[in-house]
């Protein structure tokens, strides 16, 4: 177990980016991937793409996020990747339908994002289970189903 505490930098920082690039060429850059649904955790156990068992923590004031550099040594670095949540894209036919759609999303405690006039539902499970909850609105044509592609 490799114990890692705190974030030492960001992969998109210009200076760090070059060092990480060099380490990657030398085969000394490892990546650990955290599921999007785990965002917010300050302690997590993850295995890197090179098989290193990493026990990761940050202080409560810090966030584990995409590109966080967790280890930076002359001959080795570990960078955090965050998986991207699948999103179900929905567009309401009119204001009345939008009110109903918004009510359902809130009542079901779905995690959502907005993209123009689209409502994006972040999926924590199979799309079919989400579709079943809105079957009446979809069947009535009140909400357009943009899929999760």
């Amino acid at each position: 177990m490799l114990r890692l505490h705190g974030i030492v930098g960001r992969a998109d920082d210009a200076e760090l980016h070059q060092r990480l690039h060099a380490l990657e060429h030398a085969g000394a850059l490892e990546r650990v991937t955290m599921e999007e649904a785990d965002l917010g955790r300050r302690r997590i156990r993850l295995t890197s793409d090179k098989g290193t068992d990493c026990a990761i923590s940050v202080d409560r004031a810090e966030d584990l996020s995409e590109g966080a550099v967790l280890l930076l040594e002359p001959g080795r670095a570990i960078v955090l990747r965050v998986g991207v949540a699948k999103a179900w894209r929905l567009r309401a036919r009119d204001a009345g339908a939008a009110l109903q759609l918004g009510w359902h999303a809130g009542n079901l405690h779905w995690r959502v994002r907005f993209d123009g006039d689209m409502l994006l539902v972040l999926l924590d499970g199979p799309l079919a289970e989400y579709r079943a909850r809105l079957a009446a609105l979809l069947d009535a044509g009140l909400v357009e189903d943009g899929g999760d592609g």
Binding site: A37, D38, L39, G40, R41, R43
Partner: peptide, 12 residues
């Protein structure tokens, strides 16, 4: 059966 914890609150 629908209750869940926020990740802002708990690590596990």
């Amino acid at each position: 059966l629908a209750s869940t914890f926020s990740r802002d609150l708990t690590d596990f």
